[in-house]
Design a protein around this nucleic acid. Structure first.
Length: 497
RNA sequence: GAGGGAUUAGCUCAGUCGGUAGAGCAUCUGCCUUUUAAGCAGAGGGUCGUGGGUUCGAGCCCCACAUCCCUCACCA
């Protein structure tokens, strides 16, 4: 519109029109490259005819000589452009029409500057894409958390730390996948849209299928489908399963999260603890290069063996309460009060004995667990899909891996007895009918499947997002996914053309 | 869901007692052939989150709302 209030964006749009009028395509369709940027840094001095492409993140113009840096996801390299090398016309074009944020393709040879930086001496260049908005500041980067979540692309461009975090997440998933495949596990996919949510205690998202006129649920866990596949004859299966839970937001909870689950026929939970130690240490060694991480000022050592303790022992050590001696709900509550365990924000009236044990553990014990610990032998009430222990049927053959007060892994010997399973799910359904909406829904189809015969199985689940947060010293789990769910902003201001 | 905090230029941030809206980077103009937060000289850029209120006068005080962050509760 008027000339005296032009934004940078207006000026860039004008520039694009001028470029087109002068026969320059501001958005060519391709660029031939000989190397990625991190590869180019490995090239010897004087390597010639090198063709690279990337986004310009810095320009330093000094008359007839300019330096610049281009960047891609894995690296950046300095460019040196001079009027002598490019000719006056091309050099002037660079100075006048190339900006920070643009993509360019360059050709030239490798040399080392006076300050010792490997640099491409550019003999030819081509504008690959003209940016019309400017990038965030080069020094402070983008620090506004909301902007990082909503505009992750900017976060990735300007914040090295963010790129590293997502790299670790990718590596973690890749190395785990390789390890499982190397140990005879098969990757499978099971439904996300389910007519009945099962496999965990959580509130689902509900949606609707139009032509079946059927309410369906986004899965809260892949568990019962993966076990159906074991019945189908597979011995070891795993899935990186996106799960959805319609629950509160926090620094430790996403609405949509990635859970790895695997199931191994003929293993019990003790076999599985051994495997867990081997797999996670192998993966950490490959991803991080060592077994020690720093998290919020604590140093955590994943060296094996990790201690194995029953929930009873952990509660006994943490509180002095022996849950084996206090099997009565009210008596347990009284002991907790005697030990002045603060359960004031817990709705104790709604809890049975098992849930009360869990509440005491979470309040008084779990926050103090730093290093990796196998927590075993949870009460049966807390584990409707886990196998009861042969010696003590009141507890289950179950374990969790607890690190820094976080449950990273949950696993158990699976319940494979269809009669027992039917009874337990009927009990859950009764709790549910009585108003406990965290109890599990009865699943006849799953029981029916079990009745065809299920081998001994140990199953295992781990939250990839939380593990990523732990390994990257990240406090907010939102930063472990590219685009966390956010409330939409009121419609972004529209610009006239 | 409860409590606390933040919101000022594209980005990072100042803004005193209520009295004309500030800096650095980025942008534009000029100079500059080894810089790397390049430098030097000059210039442009603001609905102070939104809507009310108090006041002669509000970025600042009051109320409501919006978004985000933190803590707590449920859940991995």
């Amino acid at each position: 519109m008027t000339d005296n209030k032009k934004t940078v964006r207006d000026e860039r749009i004008d520039m694009i029109r001028n470029l087109r009028e002068n026969g320059v395509n501001p958005f060519p369709d391709r660029c031939e490259c000989t190397h990625r940027l991190h590869e180019a840094l490995e090239l010897p001095e004087n390597a010639d005819n090198i063709r690279l492409a990337g986004r310009i993140i810095a320009i330093r113009k000094m008359g007839k000589l300019s330096f610049s840096h281009i960047q891609d996801a894995d690296g950046k390299i300095q460019l040196c452009l001079t009027q002598d090398d490019l000719g006056k016309e091309n050099y002037t074009f660079f100075k006048k029409s190339i900006d920070i944020g643009d993509f360019i393709g360059v050709k030239g040879s490798i040399f080392v500057t006076k300050t010792g930086e490997k640099t491409l001496r550019v003999t030819e260049f081509q504008l690959l894409s003209k940016a019309i908005l400017t990038l965030p500041e080069k020094w402070h980067g983008l620090s506004d958390l909301e902007a990082c979540y909503r505009q992750r692309y900017l976060d990735l461009i300007v914040n090295e730390e963010s790129r590293r975090r997502f790299q670790i997440r990718r590596d973690l998933i890749r190395k785990i996948r390789h390890y499982l495949e190397d140990h005879d596990f098969m990757e499978v996919e099971t439904p996300i849209l389910q007519s009945k949510p099962s496999g965990a205690l959580a509130k689902p998202f509900i949606t609707h299928h139009n032509s079946l006129d059927l309410d369906v649920y986004m899965r809260i866990a892949p568990e019962t489908y993966l076990k159906r596949l074991i019945v189908g004859g597979y011995t070891r299966v795993f899935e990186f399963a996106h799960c959805f839970r319609n629950e509160g937001i926090s620094t430790a909870h996403l609405q949509e999260f990635l859970m790895l689950e695997y199931y191994a026929a003929f293993w019990n939970y003790e076999d599985n603890m051994d495997f867990t130690e081997r797999m996670l240490t192998a993966v950490l060694q490959k991803v991080l290069g060592n077994l020690t991480i720093e998290y919020k000022g604590n140093s955590i050592d994943f060296s094996t063996p990790w201690p194995r303790k029953s929930l009873r022992d952990v509660v006994l050590e943490g509180t002095g309460i022996d849950i084996n001696q206090v099997k009565e709900r009210d008596a347990l509550l009284k002991q907790a009060e005697d030990k002045s365990i603060d359960l004031s924000d817990v709705n104790v009236d709604a809890l049975g004995w098992g849930s009360l044990v869990d509440a005491i553990y979470k309040k008084a014990c779990r926050p103090n667990i730093l290093s990796p610990l196998f927590l075993t032998s949870h009460p049966k009430e807390l584990s409707p899909l886990a196998r009861a222990n042969d010696e003590d049927p009141s507890i289950t053959d179950r374990f969790q891996v607890v690190v820094m007060g976080m449950e990273i892994v949950n696993a158990y010997s699976e319940l494979v007895d269809p009669i027992d399973q039917r009874e337990r799910l009927q009990k859950q359904q009764q709790l549910r009918d009585a108003g406990d909406d965290e109890a599990m829904e009865f699943d006849e189809d799953y029981i029916h499947c079990m009745e065809y015969g299920m081998p001994p199985i140990s199953g295992w689940g781990m939250g990839i997002d939380r593990l990523t947060a732990l390994l990257t010293n990240e406090e907010n789990i939102k930063n472990t996914v590219y685009f966390p769910l956010m409330r939409p902003l009121e419609s972004r201001k529209k610009f006239e053309e």
